[in-house]
Computed example of a mutant assay.
Amino acid sequence: MIMMASLFSIFEPTSSIMSMPFNWLSTFLVFLFIPYTYWSSPSRWYLLWNKINYALHTEFKVILGTSKQTGTIVFVSMFSFIVFNNSLGLLPYVFTSSSHLVMTLALSLPLWFTLMIYGWLNHTQHMFAHLVPQGTPALLMPFLVIIETISNLIRPGTLAVRLAANMMAGHLLLTLMGGMGPSVSTLILVILLSSQILLLLLETAVAVIQSYVFAILSTLFTSEIN
């Protein structure tokens, strides 16, 4: 129990100066990169990031439909915010805020509540019809209504848990492998370091993929509210 508590303590925001917690400030480091684009000349990375944003805007626009083109900025911004936080969490001594349900739920719950309120107030008939797919036998309708209702209620939880769990799993594995270093031989240490480098590359890919998954699922949920 003590070992597990110390293992998961890396995800606890306990760093502070004069009783002021500083770990969660890493979440706002993303805003330091925004002014950089206004006074510096465009670099290759900046042009690449613009192309990624344009590609996401085009994809989200197709999913949302022609009547909701302006709404894509919300999901592109959400993707950018999450991918920056995931990437910053890979740096040493930077707190990974996206590995906590506090942050991921703060992103998914308001979006889900907004969609539900908007859908039930403006498209009530469509929301009721969505609970029962077309062509469903009358005998199965009550069960499908229950299943669809539960599926709809757990959506913000699944979005939050998916992002937090994926970010936490890789960091835990890196911590476990790093803790083995002082007690292994030189040959095992070389293999361990090589494995950690490969795992870090994998975590970089996971940071981008999970940001995209969160944004695309949010877009798909929004497209159902017509």
Score class of each variant (00 low, 15 high):
182 P>L: 08
68 K>D: 09
56 L>D: 10
26 S>M: 11
7 L>W: 06
29 L>M: 01
173 L>G: 03
44 R>D: 04
50 N>M: 14
39 W>L: 06
142 P>D: 09
20 M>I: 10
14 T>G: 01
74 V>W: 04
176 L>F: 11
6 S>R: 15
97 S>H: 00
117 I>K: 07
7 L>A: 13
203 E>S: 05
198 L>M: 05
202 L>M: 11
211 S>R: 01
87 S>A: 11
44 R>T: 15
36 Y>W: 12
54 Y>L: 15
93 Y>L: 04
63 I>T: 15
100 H>Y: 05
72 T>P: 00
70 T>Q: 14
92 P>I: 02
151 S>L: 12
112 W>Q: 05
205 A>Q: 07
27 T>S: 14
114 T>M: 03
207 A>T: 10
102 V>G: 07
53 N>V: 11
174 L>H: 04
27 T>Q: 14
201 L>P: 06
24 W>C: 01
43 S>L: 08
76 V>A: 12
176 L>Y: 13
121 L>G: 02
145 V>D: 03
144 L>M: 00
135 G>K: 10
109 L>F: 10
211 S>A: 15
125 Q>S: 11
39 W>V: 03
221 F>T: 05
62 V>M: 10
148 E>G: 10
162 R>E: 12
179 G>L: 07
150 I>G: 02
145 V>Y: 12
83 V>S: 04
94 V>K: 04
